[in-house]
Design a protein around this nucleic acid. Structure first.
Length: 588
RNA sequence: GGCCUCGUGGAGCAGUUGGUUAGCUCGCCACCCUGUCAAGGUGGAGGUCGCGGGUUCAAGUCCCGUCGAGGUCGCCA
């Protein structure tokens, strides 16, 4: 090593020792005869004092330097309590410039972090990551992955890699495709997840598999979505749902305990999907606050009001919402319309308990009199209603509940609200543009096992079938999900039948997996945790871009490398992008 | 694919109902300065306002288009 100590580790007990440091010039305070340099390396920063050295006036921010000097306690009154090394300084006897830096595109040593445009930061990500905040995110991520590996190894799981160049499978997200030079016209797909491979590993008798795996999905971006992202992918044989949930809890409990000293209360609370939808209008409820939905379908039975003559009528209260000006109430309508709803009916509860608003005029005295109590509203509150098909109405109210939580400051930002959502429906209806029923679609994936209760009936009554699928939710974000898989051939066939997948289609799409299942597949199940989102939540970051070393922008570009780029005619020819496949076009 | 917001020297922002040489902070360059720690002082360089078109006597400012960035809905088994 060309240095003897790390800058951020020096303390008063090092006083009197001669040290060699190497790092970057974070700041320079040149007083002429004496100059101070804040020397930064990965461990932190230390003040370096330079006297009567010509070279110091040449130094500029972010030059890479080596210094030799003596550590000493700072003179009386000059200590800086703000920084860990503030009691000492290094008096330099020798200064070497290791490399120079061009004028910076933005200030690396920023007084107010976060004030630089993200695109600029990404273009110079190597400078951005020199800063404490961004660097801390990657350190946190490394810590989390290390803890994950520790827990997985402790529990006897094998880290096994699966291919990134694989075959395109239908359903789910759009695949990223890779042309194959040796077979012009044929394409690999990048895996949306290692799902099928991990099931093959179960057939292979590996029994306990995990992988911190990169996944690829060609869909539009969000703050918590990137085209390539990382999952902790897990699969185990001879397990039931309880085993997987317990393992998932071990993982998050260890991480939160080590990182935050927070004891995750295990076993975690569980909500059925049906309860989550009924109470929170979401399959990933944020339970850091209450303000639950109320089901008023029965309450409004027999109402004259057309809008409320619906299969579901529900409500959510906005505390203090009665004092909102008309303009704001109109804004709620626009908000609801932006989510595809017709609007958001509301009633205002005045301080004297009387109800007003457009909807109030349409309700009978009988329905009005008990309404505030039925909805759980107090004087001064507003009540929002959704009426119509059950699930979309609940989702609208659930979104309203979250918006209310934010606007009314109901959310306990310091809370870690973990929970499992279980008993997901096995299928959901597919509807066309007009809302007409078209068929059934697997909610999780077509290999998800029905619950014991649904085993006999799931294909006869798909709408009510429940599956052995579960999601791990933290503070209103889904951080993982999985299921117990089907391992019996006849059950699998019935599941394919239910979603209208013929034997031929199943064979052509998943044939390799079905063939494997001819050879004594063990009962198995697993889970995948979204690592990026998990670390973002762990560290309080707003976007998963913060916890990725080189993330992409919302159009899939990387401002640093300039990817993606056009390819040359030669590359195009070699890749066989335009070649016709030898075999027939696949359907669809 | 829809909707919303943003795009002004290297960075972050301001720019009033469209009206003279586009302003501020930081950074940059030069010089001064022996105890600062967001060091300080003096002086200086650097932008024609993402791009294209239009309205107007006059556009950073209004309109249309386009590109880029962010958010959101759709989408994401």
């Amino acid at each position: 090593m060309i240095r003897s100590h790390e800058a951020g580790t020096l303390r008063p007990e090092h006083a009197g020792t001669t040290v060699t440091l190497a790092g970057w010039v974070a700041r320079r305070r040149d007083h002429g005869g004496v100059a101070f340099i804040d020397l930064r390396d990965a461990s932190g920063t230390v003040q370096v004092v330079v006297r009567d050295l010509e070279a110091v006036s040449e130094l500029r921010s972010e030059w890479c330097v080596k210094v030799v000097g003596d550590v000493r306690v700072r003179p009386e009154g000059n200590a800086n309590a703000e920084i860990p090394t503030g009691e000492i300084e290094v008096v330099v006897s020798e200064l070497t410039v290791l490399s120079e830096a061009a004028p910076l595109p933005f200030q690396v040593a920023e007084y107010e972090p976060g004030s630089v445009n993200e695109e600029v930061r990404l273009r110079y990500r190597y400078l951005d990551l020199r800063r404490e905040g961004p660097a801390r995110a990657l350190r946190l991520r490394s810590r989390a992955t290390h803890l994950i590996r520790t827990v997985m190894e402790e529990n006897g799981y094998l880290d096994i890699e699966t291919p990134y160049l694989t075959r395109s499978t239908p359903e789910g997200a759009r695949d990223f495709l890779v042309p194959v030079r040796l077979q012009p016209g044929h394409w690999y797909a990048l895996p949306q997840s290692p799902q099928l491979f991990k099931q093959l590993l179960m057939v292979a008798g590996m029994e306990r598999y995990y992988q911190i795996a990169r996944c690829f999905r060609d869909e539009d971006f969000r703050a918590d979505r990137q085209p390539e992202f990382t999952q902790l992918d897990v699969e185990a044989s001879f397990v039931d749902q309880e085993d997987i949930l317990e393992l998932g809890e071990k993982v998050v409990a260890r991480i939160w305990s080590e990182v935050h000293g927070y004891d995750v209360p295990t076993p975690l609370p569980r909500l059925t999907y049906a309860d989550a939808m009924a109470r929170y209008g979401s399959d990933k409820p944020d339970v850091r606050f209450g303000n639950e939905l109320t089901d008023l379908t029965a309450y409004f039975a027999g109402t004259e009001f057309r809008v409320f003559q619906a299969p579901y009528v529900g409500a959510v209260v906005m505390p203090g919402g009665a004092s909102q000006p008309r303009k704001q109430l109109d804004a709620w309508q626009d908000w609801a319309k932006a989510r595809g709803a017709r609007g958001l009916a509301y009633i205002l509860v005045d301080e004297d308990g009387s109800l007003r608003g457009p909807v109030a005029k349409n309700l009978s005295e009988e329905h009005l009199s008990g309404l505030a109590a039925a909805a759980g509203a107090k004087p001064g509150d507003a009540v929002f209603f959704a009426a119509g098909k059950k699930t979309p109405s609940q989702e609208l109210l659930g979104a309203a509940r979250l918006e209310i939580g934010r606007r009314c400051d109901l959310i306990d930002e310091s809370a870690w609200a973990f929970l499992w959502v279980v008993d997901f429906p096995m299928f959901e209806p597919i509807e066309d543009d007009k809302g007409e029923f078209q068929g059934w679609h697997a909610v999780h994936h077509p290999f998800t096992a029905p619950t014991a209760e649904s085993l006999e009936t799931f294909d006869k009554d798909p709408g009510n079938a429940l599956s052995n699928a579960y999601d791990l939710v933290l503070n209103g974000s889904e951080i993982g999900g999985g299921s117990i898989r089907i391992h019996q051939k006849d059950v699998q066939k019935r599941a394919f039948d239910a979603i209208g997948l013929s034997e031929e289609e199943a064979q052509s799409q998943f044939g390799f997996l079905l063939n494997a299942f001819d050879f004594g597949p063990p009962p198995h199940g697993g889970i995948a945790l979204g690592l990026d989102r998990l670390v973002a939540l762990l560290g309080g970051y707003e976007t998963i871009r913060d916890v990725m070393a080189f993330p992409k922008t919302s159009t899939g570009g990387d401002p640093l490398t300039g990817a993606p780029t056009p390819i040359t005619a030669q590359q195009r020819k070699e890749a066989g992008v335009d070649a016709k496949p030898r075999s027939e076009q696949p359907e669809g």
